[in-house]
């Protein structure tokens, strides 16, 4: 088993996107406690598409939930672009997520009763932007994702791939510095999945933006800049390619 977990840099040349130190997470299960993450230390760099892969139950979803500020670690510290996010108050953390993080969910989780443009505009509206300018900005992004002509359609009128593009637009519309994707290709066929990942690489990866993708879809492993492999709550591999034994 390869253990090439990146050592924390003493003096990074550029700002690290995520700096996680000693992340431990326990879950209560009846009267027993299950440790899902065992003291993970890792840095996520901007400008990279980082995959977090592993079998079901390996702790990858728990890890990215902690990294993006929606699940408190039992122990450890997470800095996102220098901000110790779990030292923020609840309100500050919510606002931090709203300003700095974009989410792409496995099931898209689009709001069924509003059209694609409004769905994509949700983060802007939540930030307080008026509906019309928020929609205009969302439509610009939908245009860039080649579904501008679907802007007025409800999610149920769109295909899976189109819904995923709307979800990508929603994740990027407010220009976050961190994009977190949970199994973005799980509900898509191989061709659509590949297209979505190409698209994500094209629009989500930027010099000042980090992109973390949780996946176990081996069809897209070749698109990663860096792959973290989790097994039983520990990072067992950290490299640019999947280890041979996977």
């Amino acid at each position: 088993m390869t253990q090439t977990q990146s050592a924390p840099s003493e003096a990074p040349e550029r700002e690290v996107a995520i700096c996680a130190r000693g992340i431990v997470r326990d879950f209560e299960a009846g009267q027993s406690t299950i440790r899902v993450l065992h003291g993970i230390d890792t840095d996520i760099q901007p400008g990279e598409m980082t995959y977090v892969v592993g079998e079901s139950g390996s702790g990858k979803t728990t890890l990215i939930s902690i990294m993006c500020g929606i699940l408190w670690p039992t122990e450890g510290e997470v800095r996102v672009f220098g901000t110790d996010i779990y030292n923020l108050s609840d309100t500050e953390l919510v606002n931090f997520r709203l300003e700095n993080i974009g989410f792409i969910f496995q099931q898209y989780n689009l709001i069924p009763s509003i059209d694609a443009a409004a769905n994509a505009a949700v983060p802007l509206i939540a930030q307080g932007m008026a509906l019309e300018p928020a929609r205009r900005k969302a439509i610009e992004l939908l245009d860039a994702l080649n579904i501008g002509d679907q802007a007025n359609k409800l999610p149920k009128q769109l295909s899976g791939g189109q819904q995923q593009r709307v979800a990508i637009a929603r994740a990027l519309v407010h220009e976050p510095r961190l994009v977190v994707c949970d199994e973005p290709t799980a509900a898509l066929d191989a061709k659509s999945g590949r297209r979505v990942m190409d698209l994500l690489r094209e629009v989500a990866v930027a010099e000042d933006r980090a992109c973390i993708i949780v996946t176990h879809d081996n069809r897209i492993f070749d698109l990663a800049d860096r792959i973290l492999v989790l097994e039983d709550g520990r990072v067992t591999h950290d490299g640019t390619e999947m280890p041979d034994d996977h």
């Binding site: 993006c68 931090f96 997520r97 709203l98 993080i101 989410f103 989780n109 709001i111 949700v122 939540a126």
Partner: peptide, 18 residues
């Protein structure tokens, strides 16, 4: 039926009050 959507909104940063 919409609990996932509400969860998504909360993750994105929509407050409980909103």
């Amino acid at each position: 039926d919409n609990i996932k959507q509400f969860g998504a909104l909360k993750a994105i940063g929509v407050t409980n009050a909103k």
